[in-house]
Design a protein around this nucleic acid. Structure first.
Lengths: 189, 189
DNA sequence: TTAACTCTTGAACACTTGTTCAACCTCGGC
DNA sequence: GCCGAGGTTGAACAAGTGTTCAAGAGTTAA
């Protein structure tokens, strides 16, 4: 076997799901297509993931982890910079790709259609909100925890709007103005 | 036939699609489920709509019409009030229902997964943007058309965020603050 | 070499899906 | 009555779906 290129197939199967999900939505994610995209036999998908829900669950877990990295503080930076970085990170080029945003959208839709996935999604969202509120608290020590949470919620509204809107193809300048808006909310006196 | 209740079945089929789409996403929209939900035989769906894409196309058309009503001016009101009404309308209780928002989300996802539906969606979006920019132009005659379009785009970012976020179950107060934010953008000097 | 183990394959199964179609209603005009 | 046209039905078909499983390949240890 070409052991160098051939990373472990279990994780390539998850990659394949991500790719298919972002390109064709959940209807495009079927076991055969996943196997084909991962370059693997049909049976292997069911070998690693007992059934389709388990497969989706595993994908959701992987996404949740990468989301939390968006609001994880860089210990080297000052609180002010940590917050500003986090706010800019959600609009970074590697995030604002069609591939990533499309994936986000299909995940939201999936969560809306299925209770179990909705619960997983809601928990990840809460953690993200807490992470953002904590960054605000550090950067503006004078604010009460409630005020931090409120601001985090307001920021998330705009961020979600940015993600969705840039997917719908609005010009970049409105995205840039929206980032400034999130900073105004965060740093307001 | 119970002619009183029994509105024409063609439109009940579209209702059924809307209901299924908002509840279970596009994977939940299959001809048999549509027929069942509409209280109609399987064959009738294909009688009115040649195939599944035609059915979805018809649904998209119906949604586009109702969207335009959101930014259609009330001729009785002053320009100021027309704009304010339109901005409040997108957060009205009948809009911020799970059923409507969920439908929106699944439509976006659908557009993202299918080129033809994406085109239909993009055109409807452009018309909405133009409608909003026109309302802003009437309310603030001093603004250039470009500035109106920019403000409309910024407002739509926040509105999309509100829709998405209220679907994810954030508290109502952040929605209320976001409405105020759209008004600030619109009426800024 | 043998044995035991995990990994990998694709044929086969039962079920769902979109679409077709012959048959059947229903009702207005003759 | 009869006709014809539009509306309505559900069985039937082909293709696609998730899942199972017997068989094989590859690797390690004895």
């Amino acid at each position: 076997m070409n052991a160098g290129e051939q990373v472990d197939r279990q994780s390539r199967i998850l990659d394949a799901v991500l790719e298919l999900l972002s390109r064709h939505g959940i209807s495009g994610v079927n076991m055969r297509a996943v196997a084909r995209e991962a370059g693997v036999a049909l049976g292997l998908v069911n070998y690693y993931y007992a059934d389709k829900p388990s497969l989706i669950r595993a994908v959701l877990g992987r996404i949740g982890e990468s989301d939390m990295r968006l609001v994880s503080p860089d210990p080297e930076a000052l609180p002010d910079e940590q917050l500003r970085d986090a706010l800019r990170r959600v609009a970074a080029p590697e995030i604002l790709t069609t591939q990533y945003l499309s994936l986000r959208l299909h995940l939201w839709a999936l969560a809306q259609a299925d209770e179990e996935f909705a619960a997983i999604n809601a928990e990840a969202f809460d953690q993200y909100l807490d992470g953002l509120a904590a960054l605000i608290g550090n950067a503006k020590p004078g604010l009460s925890p409630e005020e931090c949470k409120d601001r985090a919620a307001d920021i998330v509204v705009v961020q979600n709007g940015m993600w969705l809107t840039s997917l719908l193809g609005i010009d970049k300048s409105s995205i840039e103005r929206s980032i400034v808006r999130t900073e105004e909310i965060a740093f307001a006196d």
